[in-house]
Simulated scan of single mutants.
Amino acid sequence: MSLDLGVFCKSTLDGEAVDHCFSSLFGLGKNADPSYLDWLFKAWGWTLAVAILGLAIALVLGAVMGTFRTLPQTGTLNKWLVRFSTAWVELFRNIPILVQVFLWYHVIPAFVLPLKALPSYWLVSIALGFFTSARIAEQVRAGIQALPSGQRMAATALGLTTAQGYRYVILPMALRIVIPPLTSESMNLIKNSSVAFAVSVPELTLFAMQAQEETSHGVEIYLAVTFLYAVSAFAVNRVMALIEKRTRIPGFIVASSDAGAH
């Protein structure tokens, strides 16, 4: 079987060949019909936008909730924060991501009216961010607990408050040793962004489904989409590997792998 890559240089409007495969994407033809290659790369852009926004939400919430889960239960506030963060993790990691997307798109805006004004890609990014934050929270918790207990005692001996101890001593080290599992979560988020097709975000999976129906060239379409997903995940892997190399703490190589196992 031979591949017909010429399908990407056909117009999405009438199926006829266009002069330039990137006819509208790079302005090679002002009034040219968009090609399937245009559509493919625009869909890739939406995939990356949803994944990056979701990752930003997940990293912030995950770090906060993971930290809360390790607070010493010495006061009423700390106890409630531990309970709240535990409930957060158990709730969001035990509901399928597709169900969460539908909840954010169809249900929650009915109760939180300002969410109705948000575009669908924002709602999907929030759903992805909350879902992934529960997993990141567990990794941050494992990273904090992987640190020697002397770190916390040293912070206390220096007269630091609990908040200062976490800010200046515990979190700077814990966040570095959990970079390997964070790499996996970042790559998973790229792949999980495919659920955005369910609420009509024009990302790669939706492109593949619609383009395959229009062109009947499913092999070429899905190979191209698979390649772009793989490229995206590999790029994330390389970036995170560079960050890990630049921030590695001498003597914590074993602790890092232990943290990723939790």
Rank of each mutant, 00 (worst) to 15 (best):
S2N: 11
G6M: 03
V7H: 00
F8R: 03
C9L: 10
S11L: 07
S11K: 03
L13V: 15
G15P: 08
G15Q: 06
V18A: 02
D19Q: 09
D19R: 13
F22H: 06
S23A: 13
L25N: 08
F26L: 13
N31H: 07
N31F: 13
S35H: 07
S35W: 08
Y36F: 12
W39C: 10
W44E: 03
W46E: 12
I52Q: 02
L55G: 02
A58M: 04
G62R: 00
V64L: 15
G66H: 02
P72M: 06
T74I: 07
G75P: 01
N78W: 01
W88P: 07
W88F: 15
R93E: 04
L98C: 08
L98R: 09
H106Y: 15
P109C: 12
V112C: 07
K116W: 11
P119T: 10
S120I: 00
Y121H: 12
V124K: 05
V124L: 04
S125C: 12
S125D: 13
I126R: 02
A127K: 02
L128A: 10
L128P: 10
L128R: 08
G129M: 09
F131L: 03
F131K: 05
E138F: 07
V140H: 13
Q145P: 03
P148F: 02
S149Y: 12
Q151T: 10
R152A: 14
R152W: 15
A154N: 11
T156S: 15
T156Q: 15
A157H: 11
T161M: 06
T161Y: 06
T161A: 07
T161H: 07
Q164A: 15
R167N: 04
L175E: 05
P180A: 09
L182T: 14
L182C: 04
T183N: 11
E185Y: 12
M187W: 01
M187I: 12
N188Y: 05
L189D: 08
S194F: 02
F197H: 04
A198N: 05
S200P: 02
P202Q: 11
L204I: 04
L206N: 08
F207A: 11
F207K: 08
A208R: 00
Q212A: 14
Q212K: 14
V219D: 04
E220N: 01
Y222W: 13
V225S: 00
T226Q: 01
T226C: 13
F227W: 09
L228F: 00
L228Q: 02
L228C: 00
A230F: 15
V231R: 01
V231H: 01
S232V: 00
A233Q: 02
N237P: 00
M240Q: 05
M240D: 04
E244S: 04
R246K: 14
R246E: 11
R246P: 03
R248Q: 12
R248P: 05
V254M: 06
V254D: 05
S256H: 03
D258R: 15
A259W: 05
G260K: 09
